[in-house]
């Protein structure tokens, strides 16, 4: 089942198609400046700055504990950094005919939206979706219900209006369900629609999490180690999936250990170590950067690469075991 996952076109959001932008750093989607995050005396992020062009894939790599996930948490509102700013320019209102979406996007001007200080759900509404390093699905809900929760972020009917099944409400529900099915199709989980999310295989859960994130019609998708624990063929599928997502005009910010996977999808890479950006550049530049080689890849390129791969696989295995144990 991990085999032929041919990504289909990403379905359009409920109301309108996203205009397709051209990638360019001059037209940024995300501009992080000088973000510093401390926990007591421990500095997790130390003046991190990065800039991502619209429609591009940017990878954040770094050894364990470098602050990659902390950076994600700062961008998505889970943590509030002590200093710095993160501005974000959504790709048009995510669904322009949608008052709920539009109101969340009010005041998006030249300066973009400030992400620091927003609560996580408001970050999601402005157009940033994420996945988690240790998969966080709604395990007892079915696959399609998981995606529905994401799609419904753009829905119009509130709690009280949804109570009365008028024609408009019902039509919207049908649209939501249809889009959820299309998204499951897109990530190759068509055959798992009714399965409880918790009963899916590990790789399928990862893909379901991506589908749920895409359900919120994001303009920027944050993937936290999407290939952890994946087999070689699952990695190939993932590369194809990420490319298909980018083709639809969604920018991707990616945390990943697997250098080969990163090089396959990202044209630029930011390397973090001890909470600082130690290098930025193309995959080739990063591979030959002495600071990176020393901090992350180890003594020699090829061997260390494999080792890094093994390491992530091992961790993922541990985590999977942990999940089993808790049930």
């Amino acid at each position: 089942m991990s085999g032929a996952t041919v990504p289909r076109p990403l379905p359009a959001p409920i109301s309108r198609t996203i205009p397709q932008p051209r990638p360019s750093v001059a037209d940024p989607i995300l501009d992080v400046r000088d973000v510093t995050l401390r926990f007591g005396g421990l500095t997790s992020l130390d003046g991190v700055s990065l800039r991502q062009g619209r429609g591009s894939v940017l990878a954040v790599i770094g050894p364990n504990g470098a602050g990659k996930t902390s950076l994600f948490n700062c961008l998505t509102g889970a943590y509030r950094p002590q200093q710095g700013s993160a501005r974000f320019w959504p790709t048009a209102p995510a669904t322009s005919a949608n008052p709920a979406g539009a109101s969340a996007l009010e005041g998006v001007g030249e300066g973009g939206v400030e992400l620091v200080g927003r609560s996580p759900h408001r970050v999601a509404r402005v157009g940033i979706a994420r996945t988690f390093q240790n998969i966080r699905l709604f395990p007892e809900m079915s696959a399609v219900e998981n995606v529905q929760v994401g799609v419904e972020v753009r829905a119009r009917a509130g709690a009280l209006r949804g109570l009365v099944p008028t024609r408009a409400v019902r039509r919207e529900e049908r649209e939501i369900l249809e889009r959820s099915h299309l998204l499951l199709d897109f990530v190759g989980l068509r055959h798992r629609v009714r399965w409880p999310a918790g009963s899916l295989a590990y790789g399928e859960q990862r893909r379901l999490e991506i589908a749920r994130a895409l359900g919120t019609s994001p303009s920027l998708l944050l993937l936290d180690e999407p290939a952890a624990g994946a087999t070689a063929s699952e990695r190939r599928d993932l590369v194809a999936l990420i490319r298909a997502i980018v083709d639809q005009g969604v920018s991707v910010l990616l945390i990943e250990h697997d250098i080969r996977l990163v090089a396959a999808v990202a044209r630029s890479i930011v390397v973090l170590n001890f909470g600082r950006v130690i290098a930025t550049g193309s995959p080739e530049q990063i591979r030959s950067d002495p600071a990176v080689v020393e901090a992350y890849l180890g003594d020699s390129d090829g061997r260390a690469d494999d080792r890094a791969g093994d390491r992530t696989a091992g961790q993922a295995g541990d985590r999977a075991d942990g999940r089993e144990g808790r049930r």
């Binding site: 996580p120 759900h121 988690f132 966080r136 709604f138 007892e140 929760v149 419904e152 749920r212």
Partner: peptide, 19 residues
């Protein structure tokens, strides 16, 4: 569905845009 999502994983629900 939003209530169920909150019950099952509040962090994920919030990150998925559930208020």
């Amino acid at each position: 569905r939003a209530w169920t999502a909150i019950r099952q994983d509040e962090v994920a629900a919030e990150a998925t845009g559930v208020a």
